[in-house]
Measured scan of single mutants.
Amino acid sequence: RSRTAFTAQQLEALEKTFQKTHYPDVVMRERLAMCTNLPEARVQVWFKNRRAKFRK
């Protein structure tokens, strides 16, 4: 699988949600996936990586 390049709009939506909660539930992730045209699995991995970045 190749690396996913996120658009500015996708990142904005993801970051906005991350500010609200670092652990979105499956419903919220699926809604984000639909809004951003990304698979739910990519949204889940983005949050996992973003939490790791946040802890540093």
Results as ranks from 00 to 15, higher is better:
residue 51 R to C: 02
residue 17 T to S: 12
residue 54 F to S: 09
residue 37 N to F: 09
residue 54 F to C: 06
residue 7 T to F: 08
residue 24 P to W: 07
residue 53 K to V: 12
residue 34 M to C: 09
residue 54 F to Q: 09
residue 46 W to K: 02
residue 35 C to I: 15
residue 35 C to L: 14
residue 23 Y to M: 01
residue 23 Y to R: 11
residue 18 F to H: 07
residue 50 R to I: 06
residue 10 Q to G: 02
residue 26 V to A: 14
residue 32 L to Y: 02
residue 19 Q to L: 11
residue 6 F to E: 06
residue 19 Q to S: 11
residue 16 K to D: 10
residue 23 Y to Q: 00
residue 7 T to W: 10
residue 43 V to Y: 12
residue 35 C to F: 09
residue 40 E to K: 12
residue 9 Q to M: 13
residue 16 K to Q: 12
residue 30 E to I: 00
residue 36 T to H: 14
residue 25 D to A: 00
residue 49 N to R: 09
residue 47 F to A: 03
residue 5 A to P: 15
residue 33 A to F: 00
residue 13 A to E: 14
residue 38 L to A: 02
residue 48 K to T: 08
residue 17 T to Q: 06
residue 46 W to Y: 07
residue 50 R to H: 02
residue 52 A to P: 06
residue 17 T to C: 11
residue 37 N to T: 04
residue 6 F to C: 06
residue 14 L to C: 02
residue 48 K to G: 07
residue 42 R to S: 15
residue 54 F to R: 03
residue 33 A to P: 00
residue 45 V to C: 11
residue 28 M to F: 03
residue 41 A to H: 11
residue 16 K to H: 09
residue 20 K to R: 13
residue 16 K to E: 13
residue 27 V to F: 08
residue 31 R to L: 08
residue 36 T to D: 04
residue 26 V to K: 13
residue 31 R to V: 04
residue 3 R to F: 13
residue 46 W to S: 07
residue 33 A to D: 06
residue 19 Q to G: 08
residue 21 T to Q: 07
residue 33 A to I: 00
residue 2 S to A: 11
residue 15 E to W: 05
residue 19 Q to R: 09
residue 11 L to C: 10
residue 29 R to K: 04
residue 20 K to C: 08
residue 4 T to S: 10
residue 49 N to T: 12
residue 10 Q to A: 04
residue 41 A to F: 09
residue 5 A to N: 15
residue 1 R to L: 01
residue 35 C to R: 14
residue 35 C to Q: 14
residue 6 F to V: 09
residue 27 V to D: 10
residue 10 Q to F: 00
residue 36 T to M: 06
residue 43 V to F: 03
residue 43 V to E: 05
residue 36 T to E: 08
residue 34 M to Y: 04
residue 10 Q to S: 01
residue 47 F to C: 01
residue 40 E to P: 11
residue 16 K to C: 11
residue 27 V to I: 13
residue 43 V to P: 02
residue 29 R to D: 02
residue 29 R to A: 07
residue 16 K to Y: 15
residue 51 R to G: 00
residue 32 L to N: 00
residue 50 R to K: 10
residue 54 F to N: 06
residue 8 A to G: 09
residue 39 P to E: 11
residue 52 A to V: 05
residue 3 R to N: 15
residue 24 P to N: 00
residue 51 R to N: 04
